[in-house]
Design a binder for these strands. Structure first.
Lengths: 362, 362
DNA sequence: TTGAAAGCGCTAACAT
DNA sequence: ATGTTAGCGCTTTCAA
């Protein structure tokens, strides 16, 4: 059913740009100046094959010849046309990274990790903000089939990944942070279940028994895993947590955390501690708590998740679970590169360690 | 002198991926399955030209023919090879965005604006973190010459933009936030001089006379403009600001602001108010102030710049100058698209309005 | 060590 | 309305 979309029709530019276009030549514009490899070959008095060999650092070129070619390149200011090279070598040297929201500092650091590894290996990273929308996700995935990108790293909710269907498994991609081990797609992440348990056990050790959970959307596997970690840690402590202490939010931004916390505090048996599954949420929670007159941690303790750089800077500094964000990104990129280099080797899933960071908020 | 770099040699993948590669065929791998436009043409019993016309939504195709082609496409799962299309049409449909640090939430929102406009016009955005390094900047610019990208938006320090030299002016790019009006490159930004003055005048109106300035690197034109705005506003109020109240930092992160503020407070005549030229810095400043026992705003008032979403969430909420970040990005993208559509038209520089947002910190 | 030539898959001019 | 065909600029066989 999904038919190849015709080229996105560029919406007309508001204003200028339409009327004055007498340069509508019959053929694609030629390279600005440096022209093509043929021009260099001619200038240097060699064949295009030789120029190509020099360009690609092949060994079998006489030093004198190479110098002639190099001189011609310098003189003409020639730059290789990667459009042509890409077609010929059948690779775009682009790696896709799909994130649900790159405004979130958590993703920013992961993306940095991906980018740095990609670059080291001669790839560029194309960052795509899917907004956790299945439609957009699907259309980005299609870039793989259209050879616009050589591979992809997906950080979108596991539910969305699963909705991609069987066919997607043949495509060169890996999952990062969010993954379904059953899908047969390489992945990297952390043990969310244990990490959440660690956070809750810390709160319990501080004497709290009424602990709230401010969670994200259950489309995220990590949300379900962390909830289970919370539930089991509570149960192991002999506590039956009130379901009203749990909230699921469809946004991770500060404001969402703030209003959720305020709402939570309206309950008669309001929690004395809150575990938020993201630092951005937790920071909002602290703000929301203050807005209803609660002190942190005196009245209500707060624990977050991720350890973004901001966590240490707010007041009070945030107790949180640190994820190795940079390494998460680097590992994802390396797994993808492995899969690209060797398509049939089966790449493993890998789990990285987390760490409880105790600061002032809980 | 700069000679065309040979293709970045992919560093060997650590571990797997090298030994087992029996699929080293002599020619580039063919499209996985859907094959090429020729295959579709054959299946549909038409010529490749007709398939191409259908693909690109040309009108001059009989409905019946179009349906045959569409059917063949659906049946084969064909996807257009954009590598080939790009070579033929001589465009990559990629727009470069160069930022000094995309971990900074300020840039994140601008990038969103660029991305959304780019997409609306059928382009993808390639995000490049230059780390404000002239070398990296230069190498990214070279992607334009190598036809890897059709145009670029640069948010790097004006000093670095200027270092690109004359030759760069012929390239299709625009400046965003940072710009030298003299360079003849289209730009969009705000009036930093007036904005800084507005912030300082607000502090003065609150009765402060000892006002500190925590500024970023003077490589940034905006840093010099804001400093001048600060200086003139002080002078107009009849105050000769102590040079020791001014600091220039080479980082905009939270920690940098925190330590700068702590240092500033050690002076005997420490300021009673601080104007930080970035919200991230200001948030760090508040933290630093607290760490040396100062209350905000009771002991020291703090004003920031940018109005990132976090600004309203911290304690106390930050008084700041709001920049229209999203619009900044959108406008930059539109200017670039105009320049692309009509290379010889001279695109204007545009200044967007700022706004003082008064909250609790000052 | 070098060159000639065959494509990579597509678009568009030109012919029908 | 449709088909034929010439490239886009490059890499890579194969032959010399």
């Amino acid at each position: 059913m999904s038919r190849t979309p015709s080229r996105a029709s560029p919406a007309p530019l508001s204003g200028a740009g339409s009327q004055l276009q007498p340069q509508s030549q019959r053929r694609p514009p030629r390279a600005a100046d440096g022209a093509s490899i043929a021009g260099v070959a001619e200038q240097a008095g060699v064949s295009v094959a030789t120029v190509s060999r020099v360009l690609n650092g092949h060994e079998n070129v006489r030093a004198a010849t190479r110098d002639k070619v190099l001189a011609a390149i310098d003189a003409s200011g020639y730059r290789v046309n990667e459009l042509a090279r890409n077609l010929r070598t059948a690779e775009s040297r682009l790696l896709l990274t799909m994130v649900p929201d790159f405004g979130n500092p958590f993703y920013a650091e992961i993306v940095r990790g991906i980018d740095s590894v990609a670059r080291q290996h001669g790839y560029f990273m194309l960052l795509c903000d899917t907004g956790a929308d299945p439609g957009r996700e699907r259309s980005y995935f299609d870039m793989l089939r259209r050879r616009r990108a050589d591979g992809a790293i997906c950080l979108d909710p596991a539910t969305i990944q699963q909705a991609l269907g069987e066919a997607s498994q043949a495509l060169p991609w890996v999952a990062c942070c969010e993954f379904d081990p059953e899908m047969g797609v390489p992945y990297v992440g952390i043990d969310n279940y244990r990490a959440a348990g660690d956070a809750v056990r810390h709160l319990l050790a501080r004497g709290h028994r009424r602990i709230g959970l401010i969670n994200s959307d259950v489309d995220y596997l990590y949300a379900r895993q962390r909830q289970q970690g919370y539930l089991d840690a509570m149960r192991d402590a002999g506590i039956a947590p009130d379901p009203h202490w749990r909230m699921n939010l469809n946004s991770l931004d500060y404001a969402a955390g703030a209003s959720a916390a305020a709402r939570l505090m309206q309950r008669p048996d309001a929690p004395s501690a809150i575990f938020a599954v993201s630092d951005t949420l937790a920071i909002g929670v602290i703000h929301g708590l203050r807005s209803v007159g609660k002190r942190v941690p005196a009245d209500v303790a707060v624990a977050g998740f991720d350890d973004i750089s901001l966590a240490a800077q707010i007041d009070p500094p945030l107790t949180t679970i640190a994820q190795p964000m940079r390494e998460l990104g680097e590992t994802a990129a390396r797994l993808l590169l492995q899969r690209l280099a060797n398509p049939q080797a089966n790449v493993p899933g890998v789990l990285l360690p987390h760490r409880l960071v105790i600061r002032g908020s809980a």
